[in-house]
Simulated scan of single mutants.
Amino acid sequence: MDEDPNRLVIATRNAHKTQEIREMIGDCFEVVDVTAFPDLPEVEETGTTFLENATLKALAISRELEGLVLSDDSGLEVDALDGRPGVWSSSFGGEEGNHAKNNERMMREMAGIAERSARFRCVMVLARGGEVLAHFDGSVEGRILDEPSGAGGFGYDPLFAPEGHDRSFAELGAEVKNGMSHRGRALAKVVAWLGDKG
């Protein structure tokens, strides 16, 4: 496959994540994800840190495709839970990618706990041809709400209120969230790096 310098492949099958990145990156690149390449293998996320998992995905996909590949591993770290769920955020409720079960478990574990500080953390890895070009990180501090609020966003967004706000990410809307989110902050560094490299 010929390399398209304006294409950025996101190493995910999560349509919500791809759409967020597409909205944030604007017209700089044509953003596609691995669902556009059905023959690509599934990448097992066996790392114990966001960086390890993001690197695994970026390297595996960049060995299979020409051009730039961007991977992301992100999750929620809750101080009262000793940083959990962390890299296991998407399976916290016992079923991979089941947001409702993840949020239900979070509410159970946080019931009656006054200390509710938490953060979303994201690590992105940019790779080409099986080599890591650079990695980037972003985080946003906030707190866990007593119950879900709002219908927007995905994942833990209904339970997370970012610092300086009383409303959850799910209530604040995509434009506000993307301007301050962990993924938005990491992606801004990606875009700046790509701009410096021309």
Rank of each mutant, 00 (worst) to 15 (best):
L56P: 03
L81A: 07
E175D: 15
L56K: 10
G67T: 10
R105C: 02
E147P: 04
S89Y: 10
V32I: 14
S90C: 09
A100C: 02
W88R: 08
V132T: 06
R167F: 06
I61L: 01
V31R: 08
R167Q: 14
Q19S: 11
V32K: 11
L159V: 01
T46V: 11
M124C: 14
V125A: 03
M107A: 06
A15R: 15
G179V: 08
V191G: 04
D166P: 15
E104V: 10
R167L: 12
G184M: 04
K17L: 05
C28P: 05
D196S: 13
P38C: 07
A127G: 06
E45P: 00
S71A: 15
E64T: 10
L70T: 09
N6A: 12
L51R: 13
L65A: 04
P41G: 02
S181F: 13
E141I: 12
G130V: 01
A161V: 05
D82I: 04
L187S: 02
V69S: 01
G26H: 13
T35H: 14
G198P: 03
R84G: 09
L56E: 11
V132G: 01
D82L: 11
G75F: 03
M180V: 12
T12A: 02
D157R: 03
E96T: 13
G26M: 10
D4H: 13
A170H: 01
G97P: 07
R116I: 04
G75C: 05
G97A: 02
K189P: 07
T12P: 01
P85S: 06
N102C: 08
K101C: 03
M1Y: 13
G184R: 01
I21E: 00
H16W: 06
A80M: 12
Q19R: 15
N53C: 12
W88G: 04
G130H: 08
G198W: 12
K177W: 11
P5Y: 09
V176N: 02
G155Q: 03
H182P: 06
R128E: 00
G47A: 07
S62E: 01
G179T: 12
D166R: 15
N53M: 10
E45S: 03
V125L: 05
E141K: 14
A151D: 15
G47Q: 08
T35S: 15
E3V: 13
A80D: 03
E131Q: 10
G150V: 04
L145D: 00
F154G: 00
F160V: 06
V9P: 04
I21G: 00
T12R: 04
G94V: 08
H165T: 10
E163I: 08
E23H: 15
E52T: 12
V125F: 04
D137L: 06
D146C: 08
G155P: 07
V191K: 15
D27M: 06
E44K: 14
E20S: 03
V132N: 02
L172H: 06
D72T: 12
G179I: 10
I113H: 12
G153A: 00
A188K: 09
G97I: 00
E171T: 09
A134E: 15
G138S: 12
D196M: 11
I144M: 11
S62P: 09
L70K: 14
